[in-house]
Design a binder for these strands. Sequence first.
RNA 1: UGACCCAUGGUGUAAUGGUAGCACUUCAGAUUUUGGUUCUGUCAGUUAAGGUUCGAAUCCUUAUGGGUCAACCA
Length: 563
Amino acid sequence: MNSEERSLNFIEQIVETDIQNKKNKGLVYTRFPPEPNGYLHIGHAKSIVLNFGVAQKYGGKTNLRFDDTNPVTEDTEYVDSIQEDIKWLGAEWVGEARYASDYFEQLYQWAEKIILDGKAYVDDQSAEIISQQKGTPTQPGTESPYRSRSVEENLDLFRRMRAGEFKNGVKVLRAKIDMASPNMHMRDPIMYRILHAHHHRTRDQWCIYPMYDYAHGQSDYIEGITHSLCTLEFEVHRPLYDWFLEQIYTQETVRPRQIEFARLNLNYTVMSKRKLLELVNKKLVNGWDDPRMPTITGLRRRGYTPEAIRTFADRIGIARRDNIIDVGLLEFSIREDLNKKATRVMAVLDPIKLVIDNYPNGKEEWLETENNPEDESAGKRKIPFGRELFIERDDFMENPPKKYFRLSPGNEVRLKSAYIIKCVNVEKDENGVIKLIHCTYDEESRSGSGTEASKRKVKGTLHWVSAQHAIDAEVRLYDRLFNDPDPAGHKDVDFKEFLNPDSLTILKNCKLEPMLANAKAGEGFQFQRLGYFSVDKDSMPNNLLFNKTVGLKDAWAKEMVKE
RNA sequence: UGACCCAUGGUGUAAUGGUAGCACUUCAGAUUUUGGUUCUGUCAGUUAAGGUUCGAAUCCUUAUGGGUCAACCA
């Protein structure tokens, strides 16, 4: 509905211009280049939707490429999870997944060529010295004493680096560019370092590894990537990206171009892999797939759908200015999707017993109810009704405020898809806590019976579950993980200080309609009047586990806040 | 204190020299056997000052504010 009128984002505009100008023969080829050192999060989803979306829109293709040039932090666990998450999101990369490590030999050969061209040299200095010589953003650097080594010596040393003759950190290969450049990244950046480490794919084949700046652009080039999209912090790397490409570029091939866009920030959460890893390692959450995590796997376990995440990514747009998206927009997107799809069921999370005094003892009825009022094709089902029911504790008040139109003494409400009942009195325990609500029902008022009484309008409608038929379940409620809108944005306070102690609430005594006994892991439902809930992966038929995905909009709660 | 980038309602994002629009949010109302959904209405914006132009959110200058850059990480 909006696609025909939607204006182009700035990257699409660039792509269209390039196509018109027949740049790269009019091809569009993008890539999604995660480093396998962590799980994908919602920020990656933005990048995935962008990269795959742009290519698809213009008849192009997208590669998945693992940027695996640092064996110390990378692992196949991440390689697997990343592929699973991308597939789940519905993106399809062309052919097999690629790896920067597939190109190590080519990268090495090009490095020798650059040495031969006199544009790279082996430096014997320590990391500290090299760092000192880099200067600062306001002061130029100084040149390394090894900068003017002969080509022959450089080549010999570089080959011996590869051969494993040196220990970690003893030597590096540096590009010979400009130590006085105002751009720090151009001050003779390191191309290769020595790392005697086991790589998850190349195993012990290499003991020198290329740095990101050298590997990334060349990998783009090898794959024929036309538009290399990345986040804003790589902007200052672009001159270097171009410089490395310039060393090996030949006219007849595709010339990749790096374009930066603003990364996604969500309020009340953190989005850096480092911080997410810290939460996992310190067991402040229950793993990468904890439903409170902004990871793809966490959102999936929480009950988010790929469609909702994609629409969200679409809604937030692509631009070059820093942004902080309100999590409310993410929540809106999942509600919108689930509202169309989720079967409505009866579930009472905080049960209180109710007895209908004038309903025959031992009688049961199976009443018809619609599965989804938003989707007639979803059909109908029967739910059991009886003399004793559970309703939500919140749905009864002995002394209600004026606008309360749920159950209270002397007041009438409709039980959804069942009868109109009236509260006659309550029983309390010695502490004054209500333990049983006595009601009478209007026998003529059964939903759908067509009688005058069934058409009566009452203010409130409650969800309920038959006590005799109810099944038990554990339900996990989630709130935002952090109490602060920008937990990582405080210079003097660690982000973990803002963790919300109430981000997880476990409810053990929930009562569900019997049909839910067969619910399968990952399946999502709307618990009538409460919100959307999804079956946890650890759920068992005799130990049902639900995760709250998101609550329904709650006008009553809002009203109460105003008081 | 250098280089580079950015600046449109509360939050995002359009308008590509010619009527500042859309979404979320806010608020109000209608409908409703979910205080949901849907529908209608509503509040609210071009950082500032100069300049160019018949006309500037858009081009230029300056200021202000924000961001990025000094890993043998990506």
